[in-house]
Computed example of a mutant assay.
Amino acid sequence: MNAYIYLGIAIVAEVIATSALKASEGFTRFGPSVIVAIGYGVAFYALSLTLKTIPVGISYAIWSGVGIILVTGVAWALYGQKIDLAGMAGIGLIIAGVAVINLFSQSAGH
């Protein structure tokens, strides 16, 4: 399987787990707590498969950058989190950074 598919699975699983972390209310709610444990397990397993092909620094940069963007969107949609102009600008810079890595970096494992 393509390493970027594994990376995508890792990112989605981590976003689900992180979003459920808030809902777990400090691991006092069983259902969300199970989602957290499974989500992080899947995320780290898929990331480990990614690292067979894509360098760790590049993988982590993409994972964390895309994860920040997606978690922010989920927090806005599910939890009513507000984001101001500075926050949007910062996320825009993260998107730009991930794009530069994927489009121009020779170390990205293309």
Rank of each mutant, 00 (worst) to 15 (best):
I11T: 05
Q81T: 08
A96Q: 09
T28G: 01
V98S: 08
W76P: 00
V98I: 11
M1G: 15
A46G: 09
K82L: 07
Y60D: 04
A17Y: 06
N102K: 14
W76C: 04
S48H: 10
A43D: 09
L21S: 02
S24N: 03
V12P: 03
I69V: 15
V12E: 02
T72I: 09
A46T: 04
I5L: 15
T18L: 08
V12N: 01
N102H: 08
A3N: 06
T72Q: 07
N2G: 11
A10H: 06
S19N: 03
G67C: 11
A20N: 05
G80L: 04
Y40Q: 02
Q81M: 06
G57S: 13
G41M: 13
H110W: 07
V71M: 02
G65S: 07
V66R: 04
V12A: 12
L85I: 15
K52V: 09
G67E: 07
N2C: 06
I35K: 03
G73L: 14
G90M: 14
V100H: 11
I91P: 03
Y79L: 10
E25N: 12
A77H: 12
Y79P: 02
I94H: 06
A99F: 15
I9N: 06
A37S: 08
V100C: 13
V15N: 00
V15Q: 07
R29C: 00
A3L: 06
P32I: 05
A89M: 12
S105H: 12
L85S: 10
Y60Q: 06
T28A: 06
Y4V: 06
A13Q: 07
L85M: 09
Y45Q: 08
G41W: 12
V98R: 10
A43I: 08
T28E: 01
